[in-house]
Design a protein around this nucleic acid. Structure first.
Length: 735
RNA sequence: GGGUGGUUAGCUCAGCUGGUAGAGCGCUACGUUUACACCGUAGAUGUCGCAGGUUCGAACCCUGCACCACCCACCA
């Protein structure tokens, strides 16, 4: 691409206040209309620096947290570019499966359309358009904050090419025996008729009744008598001496479900202080019971269907509440209820419609992670991947050590549909014993394939049906480090993998970072990134989390309009420490705007000194490479050198907040308040040369943090023939 | 219940491996001087959460406690 000249014009010395709006727009156009953000701009550079930027969700505009992350990563990118490296920041947008589907459904509802009114294809195509609209807004925001990412390389996680890479990974895992299909308890919303991840549910305090039900000679307290026919054991706490004699025995009961024999087991999940200290274990309808059931190899019985109705005996077809009432009545009739108590307990509900979650059993796809996690732990312990702040390392390792198999299927539409095909299809049935089973309708062949097979390889039937489910969104986003680079065979992958930094929130250290390490080591036999930088949250003035419901969210674009991008960038990073929350509010950003204005005015002062110089003087100034003469109480030569060293060493340890703070402090108090004041006493040409030299040095050091105003000053120094440079932009100068 | 972080000037926070408490905002007074009132100069303001301990010496190290925030688990 041929570079284009933008005429910045001379700075307007009449304006005493920096007109950031005017200049920032010009500068941004200058950067964007040239090739500066591309690593190919300086193709001869050898050492690389790469960040595959965490893709924000394509379902809404960016919030401040993402922009703060962008700022940190851009600072690292710009700094490394100024160190002479070939820098690539890859932008992207994430399809964010479930979250997007929820948001888009709400969006549709405003138009009076329900999801079930649409076909799967229609829903997907509308949702795609919705995402593209938001992605465009988000991309503009990224540009506006000054993110020097190569936008020609932008990826969307649902792009066909990325999806195919994800499919390849899955199929490889399938062949390696890492994928299995198994029963699992899920959060089912009977009203929305969908499975929900824990994130899409919330807890609500609810009044309930605790029934003390007789089980033979024992009494068990429960709020859910309607699941008692799905019990497969009686459990006590191993430390509970009261019931020790029962261990290993079975108890015989006669109840509403008829005669049954249940084993007595011990599990530490049982709270001996709740109710009578005895728990009825119902693996089919309670998450904790499911865990206990797995541990003790208990049968799973289902008595509630996906419509939230009972499937058992005389209660069959009743809504759960109704079934509960009836069962309680029957239990009273049989004199099997000792007493009942009112209690207030937390109930898990659907975040959207607030109906009570029904934990149900269904078949899901799983990834075996234990062995993969071991390799990841090794790499972290060997410090091949470093975590900032370091204390999070042990959290990460502990999580990896205790990792469970990962359920990677979801019952939604918006996402990557699982590339598994069944000959003739399948259906899930509940047999008379309450057992959930998958019944194959064809010859039973299961085919993993990127493209739909035309016929069954075994029986040659042409009735091939794809699995209905999609992948967990994290299964795709955890492959981002190589999908962002175009897959493991691309030129970019060869040149830029592994990335140097992964910058993300500590809240997704496990969800994302840990699993990214796992999947990337599996796929590439190499780490995905060398450093992990965790950021904290951006809180409001009172230290509260910003949220839409609280209405305390800070609108990034209004901040930029009021105070300018450079000011916002400084406000977002100055004084921050990794994993540490930070507060943001108007007055704070205003303070940084004042500082930007200080930079502007000091440059005005310096340029005014240079106004009447002839070309010979200018040449003298240009040729000055660090001779000092101005008498000042500040030893500027030494101070500048110290500042440089400190900046470099702080960057090495990712102490960006400290660096920003130090640079600002130095510029304001040492450079302006002391040194510039003293410089006023020396009118010699040597003094002017020193002034330009020191100024130029500082502007470059500050550029990664406040890129706009420093570019403006650089262009004017060039325009005025006061510096010797071959570079078109300050971002390719050397620090 | 388990874990992590925080507690320093009215507010927001610095304070690196122990050696006389710092900056910005705010406040007070003064000031239009070769850039800047979105400014400068000068100033007031602190039992460094509480209680012990180590040390010649602790905001910093150790022990315990309190309060705040967050994370994980549990709520039959």
């Amino acid at each position: 691409m041929k570079s284009m000249k933008i005429n910045f014009g001379k700075m307007n010395f009449e304006d005493k206040a920096y007109n950031f709006k005017f200049f920032e727009e010009k500068i941004l156009n200058f950067w964007l209309s040239n090739n500066f953000y591309s690593p190919e701009y300086k193709n001869d550079r050898k050492e690389t620096f790469c960040i595959t930027l965490p893709p924000p969700n394509a379902n809404s505009p960016l919030h401040l947290g993402t922009m703060s992350g962008n700022t940190v990563q851009d600072i690292l990118g710009r700094y490394n570019r100024m160190l002479g490296k070939k820098v690539l920041l890859v932008p992207g947008k994430d399809h964010a499966a479930i979250q997007t589907e929820v948001i888009f459904e709400k969006h549709l509802l405003k138009e009076g359309i329900r999801k079930r009114d649409l076909t799967r294809e229609d829903f997907l195509s509308r949702c795609f358009d919705f995402c593209m609209t938001n992605a465009n807004i988000a991309r503009d925001q990224e540009k506006k904050i000054g993110l020097s990412a190569d936008f020609t390389r932008e990826k969307f996680t649902l792009d066909k090419s990325l999806t195919n890479v994800v499919y390849e990974t899955f199929i490889q895992m399938y062949k390696d025996g890492l994928i299995h299909r198994d029963k699992r308890i899920i959060n089912w919303c009977p009203r929305c008729e969908t499975a929900l991840s824990d994130i899409d549910t919330e807890y609500k305090e609810e009044k309930g009744i605790l029934y003390y039900i007789k089980y033979g000679d024992l009494v068990i307290a429960t709020t859910r008598p309607e699941t008692k026919m799905a019990d497969s054991a009686i459990a006590i706490n191993p430390k509970d001496k009261r019931y020790k004699h029962l261990l290993g025995k079975t108890i015989h009961i006669e109840s509403v479900e008829g005669e049954r024999t249940l084993p007595v087991i011990a599990d530490y999940l049982v709270d001996k202080d709740f109710g009578t200290g005895i728990l009825k274990v119902t693996p089919g309808h309670s998450k904790d019971d499911f865990v206990i059931g797995e541990r003790h190899n208990l049968p799973i019985i289902s008595v509630i269907d996906m419509n939230g109705r009972s499937t058992f005996g005389k209660y069959k077809g009743m809504k759960i509440r109704k079934a509960r009432e009836e069962i309680v009545k029957d239990l009273y009739k049989l004199d099997l209820i000792e007493k009942q108590e009112d209690i207030v307990h937390n109930v898990q509900v659907c975040e959207r419609c607030k109906s009570t979650i029904e934990p149900l059993i269904s078949y899901q796809w799983f990834l075996r992670t234990k062995d993969l996690a071991k390799k990841s732990i090794e790499k972290i312990e060997l410090q091949e991947i470093k975590i900032y702040p370091q204390r999070q390392e042990k959290n990460l390792i502990r999580w990896l050590e205790n990792i469970e198999d990962w359920c990677i299927s979801r019952q939604q539409w918006w996402g990557q549909r699982i590339p598994i095909y069944y000959c003739g299809g399948k259906e899930t049935i509940v047999d008379n014993n309450g057992d959930i089973q998958e019944k194959m309708l064809g010859c039973g062949e299961i085919i993993a394939s990127i493209t739909p097979p035309k016929t069954c390889p075994k029986c040659k039937s042409n009735k091939i049906i794809q699995d209905e489910d999609i992948f967990d969104t994290w299964f795709s986003s955890c492959q981002w480090p190589y999908t962002a680079l175009g897959g493991v065979n691309s030129e970019d992958f060869k040149m830029f993998y592994p990335a140097n930094v992964m910058e993300t929130g500590r809240d997704i250290l496990f969800f994302w970072v840990a699993r990214m390490i796992i999947l990337n080591i599996y796929k590439t036999e190499n780490i995905p990134f060398r450093n992990v930088y965790l950021h904290g949250l951006i809180l409001d003035r009172e230290g509260k989390k910003q949220s839409k419901s609280r209405g305390n969210g800070i609108d990034p674009s209004s901040m930029i309009d009021q105070f300018g991008t450079d000011a916002l960038r400084l406000a977002l990073v100055s004084g921050i420490a990794p994993d540490q929350d930070t507060k943001l509010y108007n007055e704070k950003i205003q303070g940084f705007r004042n500082f930007i204005n200080k930079i502007y005015n000091s440059s005005r002062f310096i340029f005014l000194q240079m106004q009447d110089l002839d070309e010979k003087d200018r040449e003298f100034i240009r040729e000055n490479t660090g001779k000092y003469c101005i008498k000042s109480k500040v030893n500027i030569q030494k101070e500048l050198l110290d500042l440089k060293h400190m900046t470099h060493s702080n960057f090495k340890s990712f102490d960006i907040g400290i660096t920003a703070h130090n640079l600002q402090n130095f510029y304001h108090h040492t450079y302006c308040d002391s040194y510039l004041e003293d410089a006023k006493n020396d009118k010699s040409i040597e003094a002017k040369a020193e002034l330009i030299y020191t100024f130029y040095t500082l502007i470059k050091l500050m550029h990664p943090f406040v890129p706009f105003i420093t570019e403006l000053i650089f262009q004017n120094l060039k325009e005025e023939n006061l510096i010797k440079t071959k570079e078109e932009s300050i971002m390719y100068e050397t620090v």
